[in-house]
Write a protein that binds this DNA or RNA. Structure first.
Lengths: 323, 323
DNA sequence: GTCATCTAGGTCAGGTCATGACCTACATGG
DNA sequence: CCATGTAGGTCATGACCTGACCTAGATGAC
């Protein structure tokens, strides 16, 4: 009985960490590692079970303990490399948001970055920079730190001040009551009540500069009656220029849907090896690259601008392949 | 003193969970939530600090507690949505591995999926399916579960049995001692000692079917003297067909490097608005789409196959844009 | 079948240590 | 200067954690 008590919490955490490993741990080995008697290990396992973490035990000569899936998430105990991997993954997820977990992934990123040791933070930055910007193309991706600040202020109901440059390049300072961060299409939008204009507004996150919470809490305001995501979608399609695309793909409908992903639009089968795609996007580059990368023959019916863009691409490729 | 002790560990965990929130918590509020006296909260904070988690306290009338970045990663306490978001992020990270954190991201995914409640697992599956397969194009991405099994067996040093279909379509069963999972280029490879062939081999993870650990542990074998990643790279470039690309881009070198990412190859400036790209890739589709999506004029010098492929792409785009 | 090896759990003694109550000291912003 | 927050000392009480015994049951190797 050398170590004082008080380290029981630390021991439980260490135990949880060991049990999250894919292998099975015999009680004797756990006792040795944690420097307590096997009896105490058994009691600790019981304690974990009482806390709701289902420790599975296989009996017999090759038995051992391991943590199984339970009703609630246990605390994740990550080593340095795993933490960096998750941070990098979440940052690229923030650059290519998936609808449905948009704000949750930013919350998770905020949580992680808040406690990430600084030496690891450097590695995250370096690796995220080396990550292929994927389909971002020529557009500047959003700064993940901006997203973290926006989501934090919304969750915390703190007034938010930032500089906003609108589509025509004009830059204004805004004071807002942030309500929610929403991913629509492949962009991030902040839905907030604009205190100067006295109305609900949506702001593109990549156009927000230098955001910071003022520290002033505001009372919950009655949000617009629609679902936040729908509200943003409605505002977008009514204001921003959007291309509606109609194309025929020489690809079975199932494969097309799988390769395009759910957000691309609707895919209806024409026959066994063709289908019709209807969708919307806000840039021609995006549309063209998605279609070309399908790797199948296709025909564009709408919009005419896309056909023009494809012809420009042809010309470029022709010049590129000329000897 | 109603609740028995023993819940001190649970309380510390709950406290840690609250402190990971972006906001600041006054001690009185924490005491109320956790149903203990403020004095106990102060002691708990001290305990956390002794455990190495730096709880920051701002003094004064608007003070409060929050968890700051420390020397080690504290246990991450995630709610359901955050866990799903991380799982989805890691799965897409597994589909587009970043060199340097390759095996760590799979380890993290294994850890998370081991304890992920089943109801959440369904949501992860659905969302991951809806995720845009990005640059995967026509190729079948690796099954994340396969990666998890491979990495687990390697970490655990368990013999691994699987079916392998080689490039020419032949399917064989293998018994191996897995050493490491490595990402090279944009693919996953397993470096393992093949027990039947008595030599080190590398296996493409997407060609591995139905892998399962036999449960038999094997003693550590002397690995090949190179670094695993280098070993894989050497084997690859000596055996697999690889295209070496040389192209001139009408884009400043800095921008090109940023848009292409570090793994694309080397970029040397020619003048202020042009640069030369040298790199290697194993499929023409990949090369062509990366170049076209740069959104700039470019000229391909090598290989001739890429020029031919671009001409085919031209033909397809021409047909697609024909009325 | 038999034995080794693992989980599972009961009991007991001893003393550590967590708790709440009450206290003072100090920092901060209005 | 006062309200409100963190920071920390002290004390009595008793809950409970620990290791050292013990038996029971399951499982796989020999």
């Amino acid at each position: 009985m050398l170590g004082a008590m008080g380290d029981m919490s630390a021991r439980l955490l260490a135990l949880l960490s060991l049990l999250q490993t894919p292998r099975e741990w015999p009680g004797s080995e756990l006792a040795e590692r944690l420097e307590v008697s096997p009896r105490t290990i058994r009691r600790d396992v019981d304690r974990l079970r009482e806390l709701g973490y289902p420790v599975q035990a296989t009996m017999g000569a090759v038995g051992g303990y391991r943590l199984a899936a339970g009703a609630a998430m246990p605390p994740l105990l990550l080593d340095d490399e795993e933490a960096v991997a998750i941070a990098v993954g979440l940052r690229t997820a923030a650059a290519h948001p998936v609808e449905g977990i948009d704000e949750a992934s930013v919350r998770a990123l905020a949580k992680l970055e808040q406690v990430l040791p600084s030496r690891l933070r450097h590695r995250v930055g370096a690796l995220a920079a080396a990550t292929v910007p994927m389909l971002a193309g020529a557009e500047a991706p959003v700064d993940p730190r901006t997203l973290v600040v926006l989501a934090g202020a919304a969750a915390n109901r703190e007034r938010l001040r930032f500089a906003y440059r609108s589509g025509d390049g004009a830059e204004t300072r805004r004071l807002t009551e942030p309500y929610r961060l929403v991913a629509a299409g492949r962009r991030w939008y902040l839905l907030a009540y604009d205190n100067d204009r006295d109305d609900w507004r949506i702001f593109r996150a990549d156009r927000i500069g230098d955001p910071h919470a003022t520290g002033v809490r505001f009372p919950a305001r009655v949000p617009p009656d629609q679902d936040p995501a729908e509200f943003v979608a409605a505002k977008l399609y009514s204001s921003a220029p959007v291309y509606e695309v109609v194309a025929t793909l020489r690809l079975p409908a199932g494969q097309a849907a799988q390769r395009l992903g759910a957000a691309a639009g609707s895919v209806e089968p024409i026959d066994d090896h063709s289908c019709r795609l209807r969708g919307r996007a806000d840039t021609l580059e995006w549309l063209a690259s998605r279609l070309l990368m399908l790797g199948c023959e296709f025909e564009v019916h709408e919009p005419p601008e896309l056909r023009a863009y494809l012809r420009a691409l042809i010309a470029r490729a022709a010049r590129a392949s000329a000897s």
